[in-house]
Simulated scan of single mutants.
Amino acid sequence: MTRTTRHSRQSIGRRLRFQQLLIFEKVVEAGSILAASRELAMTQPAVSKAVHEIEAQLGGALFVRGKFGVTLTDFGSLFERHAKSMLAELRYLAEDLNASQTGVTGHVIVGTLIAASATLLPQAITRLRQAAPDIAVTVRVGPNSALFPALARGELDVVVGALPEASAAGLREDDRARLTHVSLYDEALRVVVGVQHPLARRRKIHAADLQEQEWIVPTSDSVAYGAVRHFFEQQELPLPRQPVESISILTNLELLRSGPMVALMPQSAAMRFAKSGLLAVLPMEGLGTFGGVGYTTRSDREATPATRRFIAAIEEAAEALSQRRK
């Protein structure tokens, strides 16, 4: 008969050590005990021992060992979610202690979406660097289905870009309640092509001209997908057949530059790339909005001093962009 391990806050607190959590996190990231030991500058037996200790303390296997590495078990995935939250709280503690002792320092981890990565975010980072040069910034790009759950777990400090619908994909109901969305401005939608595209030389474009084009569209789990789908419905166009699905700015720029492709972009990003000579904005008006652009933070904990300075920089940058559009 299998014995069930009963846990309490006190029992877990006595058994688990933060060093074990850090080792567990690295094994998950590296995908193998050997790779994790190299990155941690530890021996392989020491890393294996730490993993075995956690498994013994929790009463379940965390990994399935295979020839080419390890993968999380269901039990391991459950533990990973909580381990990430505990390690995030350690980072917050370090940030607060450093800020109280040394002033304006720290580290902000920002998740971003296509609506902010070309204009709003770079300008905000520039403002932050000018005001507080000792604050480090890490930027992670991805769809909202990955970024918002990461924010809820504490892996990110703030997400900047297009704001999601109330039922954001990838978020559990309790996680949605932990996030606060702040709208900064509405972003218009523009159709863009490479400067060598035949449509780039046209002075007037009709919706029918776009029907047989090769399209780049955002992935279906991104915030931008709803706005793009609405565009095709509004223009009475069928959804593109076999489009390239991508939210990577660099990939999309190269596809547009080197081939006869068409894409939709937020106006601020489209105009920035057009001004740089990378893209052409097609002369079409009344395309609707890309959606609201802003930032999202956790509502269940106070932002670190570094994050508060970054948010102030985001709001200042958004105000400057709004003034230029008037």
Rank of each mutant, 00 (worst) to 15 (best):
266 P>K: 06
92 Y>C: 10
65 R>N: 06
54 I>A: 04
127 R>S: 09
17 R>T: 09
46 A>Q: 11
261 M>K: 14
190 R>N: 11
205 I>F: 08
295 Y>S: 03
249 I>N: 05
9 R>L: 15
280 A>V: 10
270 A>S: 08
269 A>S: 14
304 T>R: 01
2 T>S: 14
197 H>M: 10
140 R>C: 05
163 L>H: 10
176 R>K: 12
6 R>E: 14
86 M>R: 11
73 T>M: 06
122 P>C: 08
234 Q>G: 04
224 A>W: 05
56 A>Y: 07
42 M>A: 07
53 E>P: 00
295 Y>L: 06
34 L>H: 13
197 H>D: 11
250 L>G: 01
66 G>A: 14
148 F>W: 11
179 L>E: 06
151 L>E: 02
311 I>L: 11
220 S>H: 12
106 G>F: 05
259 G>S: 15
76 G>R: 07
191 V>K: 06
89 E>C: 04
228 V>K: 02
70 V>L: 07
62 L>E: 03
311 I>G: 02
84 K>G: 14
323 Q>V: 12
163 L>Q: 07
47 V>F: 06
63 F>H: 06
215 W>N: 06
53 E>H: 08
322 S>P: 02
289 T>R: 13
35 A>W: 00
165 E>P: 00
293 V>S: 01
39 E>G: 01
319 E>M: 09
1 M>T: 08
44 Q>C: 03
84 K>E: 14
136 A>V: 15
65 R>C: 00
20 Q>A: 13
32 S>T: 13
194 G>D: 11
201 R>Q: 11
12 I>M: 14
81 R>E: 15
102 T>V: 09
265 M>E: 11
59 G>F: 03
202 R>L: 09
39 E>M: 09
17 R>G: 02
65 R>H: 11
56 A>E: 13
221 D>N: 15
289 T>G: 14
173 E>I: 14
300 D>W: 05
267 Q>P: 01
299 S>E: 01
50 A>F: 01
230 H>L: 10
259 G>M: 07
242 Q>F: 10
255 L>M: 13
227 A>M: 06
206 H>G: 00
133 P>I: 05
306 A>Y: 00
68 F>W: 09
130 Q>I: 06
183 S>W: 00
189 L>I: 08
304 T>S: 15
165 E>A: 13
144 N>I: 09
110 V>C: 04
28 V>D: 04
18 F>V: 13
189 L>R: 14
249 I>T: 12
170 G>W: 08
312 A>P: 00
